[in-house]
Amino acid sequence: MSVILCTAGYDHTIRFWEALSGICSRTIQHPDSQVNRLCISPDKRFLAAAGHHTVKLFDIKSTNPNPLLTFEGHTGNITGVAFHCEGKWMVTCSEDSTVKIWDTRSGNIQREYNHGYPVNDVVIHPNQGEIISCDRNGSVRVWDLAENNCSHQLIPEEDVPVSSVTVASDGSLLVAANNNGYVFVWRLVQTLERTQLVPVTRFPAHTEYIARVILSPDVKKLATCSADHTAKIWAVPLPDADDVPDVPAPAPKLTNGDTNGSGHMIQQTLIPAPLSLPTTTAMTNGTTANSAGEGPGSGGPESKPFPLEATLTGHQRWVWDCAFSADSAYLVTACSDHYARLWELSSQQVIRQYNGHHRGAVCVALNDYSEAR
């Protein structure tokens, strides 16, 4: 199976599609709950389906409709799932305020991190040593697996839920999106001691809630999908010299007793104004001070957005999820209007529509890499 494409949602089914013909080749029932997220393992062997309290692991090549393994331990909707590059472990996040790491062979929980607030999304850094998650209290946290603690807490906009996060395949960028329709971008800079996060830009991408943000495999495009019934494609500019410090200095940790809930100190980068870009962020005695131009309401400049390449219109309701093809030339979207669509980005046209769900399609997973990763 060179191309694996599947969708799921509120009709309690998972559907596999022949990407080019649009034919549904297989349907798996998921009677326990709706399916919130899907993830295909890098080797194309397994599909993880995140539901209300459990994640079910299915064998993609088998006709067995039953899951190989059920991961139990969350007490709320599971909102995110991602596989380790070799499939040895899996990370999930949930409305129960936790991020959990699972052994994919045994189904046991290996680690657990507590946000203190419902968690909306989680991704794995390409270095496989950090995971990044976001929550409804408006924070993005970077978890260092070697140190077993939270190394950074980012607050893009005070008290505005962060709905989605994505990290570049080359580890160069971290992007987050929030409920106000804003996108926030940081450059990730590796130092001897830790990953440093340098603010790059922020910009309004949609007029309503952003459900998903994702960087393309070639890191040249950024896709956002929203409650405003559209998905948008943004060009990722090449980094300016100012974006990457020549000799990034290790940032101090907070000294005011702020912890991640398990006794570990965290570094906090606070970016309070949604329309102004800090050029420096200094920490002194546990406080965060910003040096930046003020937002438009105060007469200062707004930060430069990524150039908009395309607005994909045609869906009739919320566009919940999206996935890039391996060559970054196509995008699949899933929508509450029951349909998934395959878009050719060069022409901005729908080249295939996938019909079959009886209720909203809210998640999609695509793996069309020529070799298992």
Rank of each mutant, 00 (worst) to 15 (best):
G76C: 10
G76A: 14
I78T: 02
I78Q: 04
I78Y: 02
T79M: 12
T79R: 13
G80H: 01
V81S: 03
A82C: 07
F83Q: 05
H84P: 01
H84L: 06
E86D: 15
G87V: 07
K88E: 11
K88F: 07
W89T: 04
W89F: 15
M90V: 12
M90Q: 12
M90D: 10
S94F: 02
S94D: 08
S94M: 05
D96E: 05
V99A: 04
V99R: 00
V99G: 02
K100C: 08
K100D: 01
D103S: 12
D103F: 03
T104Q: 15
T104M: 13
I109R: 15
I109L: 11
Q110C: 10
R111P: 03
N114I: 07
N114P: 00
H115C: 04
G116Y: 13
Y117D: 11
Y117T: 14
Y117P: 05
P118I: 09
P118Y: 08
N120F: 08
N120L: 12
I124K: 03
I124A: 02
H125A: 02
N127K: 08
Q128N: 14
G129V: 05
G129F: 01
E130T: 09
E130G: 00
E130Y: 08
I131E: 00
I131V: 03
S133G: 02
C134R: 02
D135I: 08
D135M: 09
N137C: 11
N137R: 14
S139Q: 11
S139L: 09
S139F: 10
S139T: 12
V140L: 07
V140F: 02
R141A: 07
R141T: 07
V142K: 05
V142T: 11
V142Y: 08
V142F: 10
W143D: 00
W143Q: 01
D144T: 09
A146R: 11
N148G: 12
N149A: 15
N149Q: 15
C150H: 10
S151H: 07
S151T: 12
L154E: 04
I155E: 11
D159W: 13
D159R: 15
V160S: 12
P161E: 15
V162Q: 07
S163H: 10
S163C: 09
S164Y: 01
S164G: 00
S164E: 05
T166M: 06
A168F: 06
G171M: 02
G171T: 05
S172R: 01
L173P: 01
V175H: 05
V175W: 02
A177H: 04
A177F: 01
N178R: 07
N178V: 01
N180E: 07
Y182S: 06
Y182T: 03
Y182F: 14
F184P: 00
F184R: 01
R187W: 00
L188K: 08
L188F: 03
L188S: 09
V189I: 11
T191H: 13
T191K: 10
T191L: 11
L192E: 15
L192G: 13
L192T: 14
E193P: 05
T195H: 11
Q196C: 14
V198A: 09
F203S: 00
P204Q: 15
A205P: 03
A205K: 09
H206C: 11
H206K: 10
